[in-house]
């Protein structure tokens, strides 16, 4: 039974070997050339199943994988009953929200400590179970890497997810995530990642304020040869 048609994959809830499982199938995308499409689907299926496993080793709860079928870009995994974080957060008390977000920050820290970046941290990709457990899903865009840039992007995406879907509580949510994160990775490594987030936000078109010099004068980028 199809339970979710995402942009990237379809989730089916099925009975398999007498248990309830999720089949995550990456269906071909018609808009992409088959050469590009097949490569992306196979790569992401491999990567996701590996990372779900590595994350578990790092102490971050993820669904258990039962089988991977590369020919079909299909991962068969444990069915997790619960709600997406995006449904839980707005309905929670500030205290519960704070607790959850700090916990999430700690888990993201554990991923990074173990050279894993998730690649798509949103409030849809964290499940809160009926047994009060947080489970991370959807590692399809993740990577095994120590790249500071990608760690920065990871947290930056989380921040953006809060801003775009929970704009009213975005700031407190992200600050609590950071608090947990700093606790998990330590002050200095966290400082480097935070600086990276700043850099990413400055680099793109993320800056609403003009850059200021010491005397608050606008810095003019007169040497840029870019298109307006």
């Amino acid at each position: 039974m199809l339970i979710k048609k995402g942009a990237e994959a379809c989730l089916f809830l099925e009975d398999w070997q007498s248990r309830k499982v999720i089949m995550k199938r990456r269906l071909p995308k018609k808009y992409r050339l088959p050469e590009i499409d097949e490569k992306i689907r196979t790569n992401r299926t491999i990567r996701e199943s590996q990372l779900l496993h590595y994350a578990k080793e790092a102490g971050v709860p993820t669904p258990t994988i039962f089988m991977v079928d590369l020919a079909d870009s299909n991962i068969i995994m444990e069915f997790i009953e619960g709600e997406q974080l995006k449904q839980v957060l707005p309905a929670s008390t500030p205290e519960k929200r704070r607790h959850l977000n700090r916990r999430i920050g700690e888990f993201i820290g554990s991923l990074h400590n173990n050279e894993i970046v998730h690649g798509d941290l949103t409030t849809s990709n964290i499940i809160f179970t009926s047994r009060n457990k947080l489970i991370f899903i959807d590692f399809g865009l993740g990577e095994k890497t120590t790249d500071l840039e990608l760690r920065g992007v990871d947290l930056h995406l989380m921040k953006r997810a809060f801003q775009s879907t929970h704009s009213r509580i975005a700031e407190e949510c992200f600050n609590d995530v950071l608090e947990g994160y700093i606790k998990a990775v330590g002050d200095n490594p966290a400082k480097n990642v935070l600086e990276k987030i700043d850099e990413i936000e400055r680099r793109g078109r993320y800056v609403s304020e003009r850059r200021k010099t010491k005397n608050d004068k606008e810095v003019l980028n007169n040497n840029s040869f870019i298109h307006a």
Partner: peptide, 10 residues
Amino acid sequence: HLPYSVKGMD
């Protein structure tokens, strides 16, 4: 084949 770089929605 060229690098295909999608990070979340970015």
